[in-house]
Structures are given as C-alpha cells and as structure tokens.
Nucleic acid binder design. Structure first.
Lengths: 163, 163
DNA sequence: CTCGCAAATGTTATAGTATTACAAATTTTG
DNA sequence: CAAAATTTGTAATACTATAACATTTGCGAG
C-alpha cells in the first residue's frame, strides 16, 4: 500500500504554505523577478486552499481584507506566478493551484477528485515520455501539455464504498 | 419572414462530414437517443469546421441561417453530442470539435497547432495506459482524462523553418 | 538627488463563456 | 386521446477574462 499523498492525509498545512512562499522568494530572486506584495499575497491565498481557487475567489478574499482590487490585478498576479512556475491553471476548472514542484522541470499531471475537489499534482515522467512519443509519431512539435485526470481520490473511494 | 432552410444542407458536401453524420445517426439509433434537427445541425456545423468551434460561433452560424437560437439551445445540443461521444470539448480553447473516433472506446489526445489552429485527435493507447498506471500508483480511480497538447503541426513547422 | 524610463498597479469598461429558471411545444407512452 | 417525459424557447444573469488607458512605483544614469 503506497503512502498516501499529502492532500489526502492530515498535515500541518501552514508549514506547506510557509515553505512554498520561501521557495517562491528564492526562485524569484534567482530569476530577477519581483515578488511584489500583491503577487506574494495571491500566491499565499492560493496555497492556503487545498482546492483550486478561481480568480474571482482570490479577488473576493483580497476584498475581505480591504484590498480594493479589480479583476486585472488578480489576473496579472496569476500570470506572473504561472510564468515563474509557482502556480498552475487547471483548465477544466478555470482555477489555480499552487505548484508543488516549483523550480524543478516537470510536466504536471493533475489528479482531480470529483467528489471532494482536492487536486494532487504529480510528476509522471513515463506519461510525459509516452505523450512525446505519440506526438512525434505525427511529427508534431510539443510545446505544452495539459493533462487533467478527474476521478475519485482514495479517501472518497473508501467513503462511497462504505454504503 | 423567417429565412427558412431551403437548402438545409450547405453546398459543401465534404465526404467526412457526410460520413460523420451518418455514423452519428447510427450511433444515436443504437443508443435510443434522438438526433433532432437542431442537434444534427450543430454537429454538422462543428464538423464543417476543421478547427474547434466555440459555442457562440455555432450560435452565430445558426443565426445566419435564420434560426433564432439562444445560448442554452446550443449548449444543450453540445451536451447531448458530448454525452454520446460525437463531439469533444477542448478545455484549453473553450471550443468543440467533431470526434473522429465516435463509437469506439477511446481516450482522446488532442494535438493543437498553436499556429494554424488545426486540431488532430489521436488515439494513444500507450499514453492511456501510462496515465492509468500513474494514477493507480496514487490509488486514484480515473473517470475522465483531459489531454491537450499544444505545439506546432508538421506543416507549420516547415513554414516557420523556411524563413 | 532627481530626472526619466520601465515595470507594476489602478480603474473603467467590455468581451467572451456558460448556466438558471421557467414557459411552451413536441414526442412518447399508457 | 390524455398524461408523462423530453425537447426547445426565452429572458435574465452568473462567471471568466481581457482591453485600454491613467497613475504610481522602483531603479538606474547622469
């Protein structure tokens, strides 16, 4: 039995967030990119949620804390964070989630639980290789891969099986 | 005076469209599903475009032919067509494309050319297997896979290399 | 330091995508 | 035929994202 992945088991999430922010600062420094207060706050808000957050969810949270923001503010921060590999956009959800592999080269594969809404990002080199190889068979030059798997996470399988 | 559809079928009878519609009728009959005129027309419109068509593109084409449709009409038809595996939604484009493997079980992998906009759907059993296997490693039960690869198709690679 | 440029943010408006809710019409079935 | 179920019509609205332009901020050159 494999060890349960982080989102599926209890843990001190605050530590995750703190660590992610620290990593983000390092990465931005290395890239000569400015992790401004807004950008950092958006990243923190996204990380604090285990589930993907919509741009307007972020906007609402910012408003709650008195930051009078408009949509472009949030989208610009999200663009920045994506460009530096700090968050991912989940196309099938129109939502964003903190990248758990920031800094390392990877093609994300997302396991999206349709019951609880949690999302696990996993590195899957064999999958990436298979995709590359299939694309190559059509002489297609890959630039970007979106791979989003929806289904049931282990915990929700157990619950639905308990009936 | 409504511009009634005298030539309901446009002059452009491409073989692939005709074939796709014939297949769709067969599939719907087998499934006891009703391929109503609207649904069939939406499917045909989508097939006539080699590039993915947005819901509002479909809507506009329907309006042009005097069919006074509103968004729900189109979205309902698209839902129906998706449910019966006749069209796919491309999440990264918010657009729809005719399924070239209708009837057969498959997990679609889409090669989306970022230059010309054409999309190729390909079956890729090895990729599906790799995805299943990776998900299984996390005890995740797969229900649906979205796999959209953007990049350059062979033709556009050649053109961009010709400069 | 301060001028001037580039980057970032603010602000307003609008474009684009999708759904809800209820009414009317059509098809299926008993 | 009449009742039930499905499909379509219609209006309003929610949700997602970007355009365009003004203003502010950070930062290096002189």
């Amino acid at each position: 039995m494999p060890v349960q992945a982080l989102p599926y088991r209890p843990h001190d999430h605050e530590t995750c967030v703190t660590q992610a922010l620290a990593d983000a600062r390092t990465i931005c420094t290395q890239n000569n990119a400015r992790l401004t207060p807004i950008r950092e706050r958006v990243l923190e808000l996204i990380w604090q949620s285990h589930k993907p957050l919509g741009a307007y969810d972020v906007l609402a949270r910012l408003s709650e804390e008195g930051h009078n923001a408009a949509p472009p503010t949030v989208y610009r921060a999200l663009d920045f964070l994506q460009q530096h590999g700090l968050v991912h956009r989940i196309a099938s959800l129109n939502a964003f989630i903190g990248c758990t592999h920031a800094g390392k080269y990877h093609t994300g594969m997302f396991l999206i639980c349709s019951s609880c809404g949690n999302v696990l990002e996993m590195a899957a080199p064999e999958v990436s290789r298979a995709v590359e190889s299939a694309a190559a068979a059509e002489s297609f030059r890959v630039e970007n891969v979106i791979l989003e798997v929806s289904g049931l996470c282990p915990r929700c399988q157990a619950e639905s099986g308990d009936e």
